[in-house]
Design a protein around this nucleic acid. Structure first.
Lengths: 365, 365
DNA sequence: CTGAAAGCGCTTACAG
DNA sequence: CTGAAAGCGCTTACAG
């Protein structure tokens, strides 16, 4: 039922109500924000007029400007906006943040990253938030620079020790080391690694020694070092025994491509270590399609232990990391800063090798 | 490296830069927003001073107030914030919205819903957004009322024809009808339905005739009617052949509870129709644990066709709905309103029965 | 319990 | 190409 047939005009404001009622705008504001500051009767009259005038309630932007806070937490990562809902590991992590943030009634602003350079920064510059959680950006990423410039409380995830900002991370090198040691224990000596992008400007492909040494991505670096530590422990030389392929995306499709390239080498690697389950799942797909039996002819290890790892066939051997907890800690650390409460400056969470069906002894050993 | 050793003071503003440089604030503003309005040299000088003063860039809130827009889209649903990342169907839907929204550089604000009544509305009242996408709220839900009061461009999802707002929905009744007809064709005559909450104030349990007739949840209603249509088509009476159990949450755990209640009846239902895959997965879990063979002793049909449906064992027969497309359309409709472009007032998307392994002929027929 | 005043930080016509 | 002025809509001390 439409009652109002007047032409639509500008929206009613606090002031309109104040004028209508002959009171100060402060009084109307108080009706909304401090009920104890005026008589119940007056408050009622104010709400009545507000309803009649179709007042939408105090404008969040004006209130935010005045109060100096927005009530939202910004989330920034390298990928497209939709990645937050499509990548299993990202979803788990964000679920953790959400759990912490929802308790305080804050909103979660997923900052967009449209293709192209300038607008991408613009999204960060124009995000009306009280603080940021930054996921997995390298120190030299312009996105991180843009966030830093905002000078808002910020917590870094998977990016330790930058600019005195609090951070939460996992034991990447320990997890990677356990993964490599596992296949080494099984007798494998020719290994392939499916790595994340080593630098922000990466291109997909085999990463040679020089490329590996240029790595700025701390997560990738920690994991490479972890793998290497396992090799050293048994006296094996990294460059002699390991080929690294750099993947641009965390998707099974990228994993398939990497597997194809890695397995084309002679002699062929007998074990592939992937830096994410999504990539490892792609290896499984490629192997199935290429007629390579896993684990009989090829061992595969993932990283993350997302739900899909256990459901894959064969079930994926992988490194568990506590995604949800990582998110919760990121949320907690940021909320604590926002409230001026004390909190740890850094949180490091454990990882753990989960052995399932995708790894076995190297053939003929 | 810390250079600044002064005590921290208030953050620099446009005005500080203008004063420092002896120009008008408008000029500084133009340096950021309209590069063509001033000489490159002056613009450079402005940025230099900005950097020296540690200016964080134009304040998003002030800019938003002035411009009358925030650059963010608000998402509202009934569940907790983290549900967006934990429920597979919700994730797919949000992924669709994100895809549309990211192209325009907007952010996505997930509006929090802390427990309790007042603060829950407060979150909606204080969300600095340009418009809302409202997912699956009944017409009588206070949350929806709060959104409407904001008088922002809004699109409704799975909630048709309310207050002239544009909406996108799926063919719920057609999908449900196909599901019921499928089990009817297989000879089943005693059916159980695992339904969503029928009204906002629902409690979990068997919903009797009166309760069913009180249904305000349009999705649940459309599906109940769809199931019923299939029964009518073969001359069966609804209340004689169907028991409905109302579930409060969309989780396997809720599905297990419902299955336990539904299957405790004598004679026992031989087919269970669930309004979501999550619930159906719970039925599968319960059946496995109770030693009931699916589909030999019990047929199960889901709704959604989330990825888990195909991976379940037995693979779940279910009704496919285009979650991602639903999100994309919701995004498109809202963006079109925001831009003043013409767009459809309503979009209805098809559903489709996907027969897999969880349904079979009723025993002894 | 109520109200006048200042100001949050910016952008936008508009005049020069 | 540059600048003075108005105002976006609100909240917060503060005075009465």
């Amino acid at each position: 039922m439409k009652v109002n047939t007047d032409p639509p005009k500008r929206r009613a404001t606090l002031k309109d109500i104040a004028t209508e009622l002959g009171v100060a705008t402060a009084t109307v504001s108080n009706a909304y924000n401090r009920p104890d500051q005026l008589s119940p009767a007056l408050r009622e009259r104010i709400f009545e007029v507000a309803a009649r005038l179709g007042y939408a309630g105090p404008d969040p932007m004006a209130r935010g400007l005045r109060r100096g806070q927005s009530g939202a937490i910004g989330i920034v990562h390298r990928e497209r906006l939709s990645y937050a809902f499509s990548d299993p590991a990202a979803s788990l992590f964000l679920q953790g943040i959400a759990r912490e943030v929802e308790a305080g009634g804050q909103g979660l602003l997923l900052v967009s990253r449209p293709p192209g350079q300038e607008p991408e920064l613009a999204a960060i510059n124009s995000a009306a938030v009280d603080g940021f959680v930054v996921h997995c950006l390298t120190a030299d990423d312009p996105l991180l620079q843009a966030v830093l410039r905002r000078q808002l409380p910020t917590v870094l995830v998977d990016q330790p020790g930058f600019d005195d900002l609090p951070y939460v991370m996992i034991d990447d090198s320990g997890g990677a080391r356990a993964a490599a040691q596992h296949v080494l224990d099984l007798g494998h000596r020719r290994l392939g690694v499916l790595a994340f992008r080593l630098t922000p400007d990466a291109t997909a492909g085999i990463a040679d020694r020089q490329r590996q040494e240029a790595t700025t991505n701390v997560v990738a670096l920690a994991r490479l070092r972890g793998y290497d530590a396992a090799l050293r422990a048994v006296g094996l030389d990294w460059h002699e025994h390991v080929t690294v392929y750099e993947c641009l995306e965390h998707t099974p499709a990228a994993g398939r491509l990497a597997a194809a390239a890695l397995l084309a080498a002679h002699p062929r690697p007998t074990a592939l270590l992937a830096m994410s389950d999504q990539l490892a799942l792609g290896v499984l797909e490629y192997a199935a399609q290429a007629g390579l039996a896993v684990p009989a002819q090829l061992s595969v290890v993932g990283f993350d232990d997302t739900p899909a790892a256990a459901l894959a066939s064969p079930a994926l051997t992988t490194v568990y990391q506590p995604h949800v907890d990582k998110g919760r800690w990121a949320g907690r650390l940021l909320l604590a800063r926002l409230r001026g409460e004390p909190s740890p400056g850094a949180v490091s969470l454990p990882t753990r090798l989960v052995v399932r069906e995708s790894t076995a002894a190297v053939p003929g050993v």
